[in-house]
């Protein structure tokens, strides 16, 4: 993988306006994701977190603005090279006609010269890492929703990326599995230096593992708070931020 640029900025977003059919849902975003950090994107349902992630991963073209990953601009997206990141989608998005092992093995087959048995070993190891050892020959339809989530994280890890995008990885997981997932992410982050960009609503995990965050707002069409989530919780004077971190409904 490419080394991060000197200033330690992994993703640089400038003047980014995104939306559907030319209608913006988020306007003029500026933020940096620092290398080796765990960057959390927060905000109410429907404010555009998944949409932002689709732009960061190059699946959608912005209305305006620029996105650089490791100093390289992402638009137009480069072709025929392995992506410098892994993505886990909100819905899992596993290939329905392939087993879990084949799902994880696919990027390895495409982008590495490993012989088939080694690919299977690596893929199987990834599945074990997310607690899915023993399910490698199941089809996505034959496992539970939370397991699909974990399988998609295993696939995102397949190519050993140093940048991971995860859309609500712990949604649908029980508290214990979700803590284990947090531990997994922390381990990847600390020992392998993986930068993680994460959409989540789990307050505990935001405070436990998040090092930096932005909070998006639907009505403001942009970022209403940024910084270390633990500091935001105590220091922010913005009532919307206060409500979010203290689980208070509007008007309270």
């Amino acid at each position: 993988m490419q080394p991060a640029p000197q200033d330690g900025v992994k993703i640089r977003v400038r003047g980014l306006t995104i939306g559907y059919g030319g209608v913006p849902i988020l306007r003029d975003l500026d933020f940096d994701v620092h290398s080796r950090g765990i960057f959390v994107i927060l905000g109410g349902s429907g404010c555009g977190k998944s949409t932002l992630l689709r732009h960061l991963t190059g699946l959608q073209t912005p209305i305006a603005g620029s996105i650089e990953i490791a100093g390289v601009t992402r638009f137009p997206p480069p072709v025929d090279e392995p992506p410098p990141f892994g993505v886990s989608f909100q819905t899992g998005a596993l290939f329905g006609s392939r087993t879990l092992l084949e799902n994880v093995a696919l990027p390895l087959q495409k982008w590495t010269g490993l012989p088939a048995p080694d690919i299977d070993n690596v893929a199987f190891a990834r599945l074990r890492l997310v607690g899915l050892g023993g399910f490698e020959n199941h089809l996505p339809a034959e496992i539970s929703g939370g397991m699909r989530k974990r399988a998609s994280i295993a696939r995102a890890l397949a190519l050993e990326p140093d940048l991971l995008f995860l859309d609500e990885p712990s949604a649908g997981l029980d508290p214990i599995t979700s803590v284990e997932l947090d531990d997994l992410l922390t381990t990847l982050n600390r020992s392998l230096g993986v930068t993680i960009v994460l959409v989540t609503h789990e307050l505990e995990s935001i405070f436990r593992i998040g090092t930096d965050c932005i909070m998006l707002d639907r009505d403001a069409l942009g970022i209403i708070a940024r910084g270390d989530p633990r500091e935001l919780r105590t220091d922010s004077s913005d009532p919307r931020v206060h409500r979010f971190f203290n689980r208070l409904p509007a008007g309270a």
Binding site: L59, V79, E81, F95, K110, R155
Partner: peptide, 18 residues
């Protein structure tokens, strides 16, 4: 169409596959 609706097409693209 089903692959598209299930985000599988996006998943392919996110793995760098056309």
């Amino acid at each position: 169409g089903t692959m598209r609706v299930n985000e599988e097409i996006d998943a392919l693209r996110s793995l760098g596959l056309d």
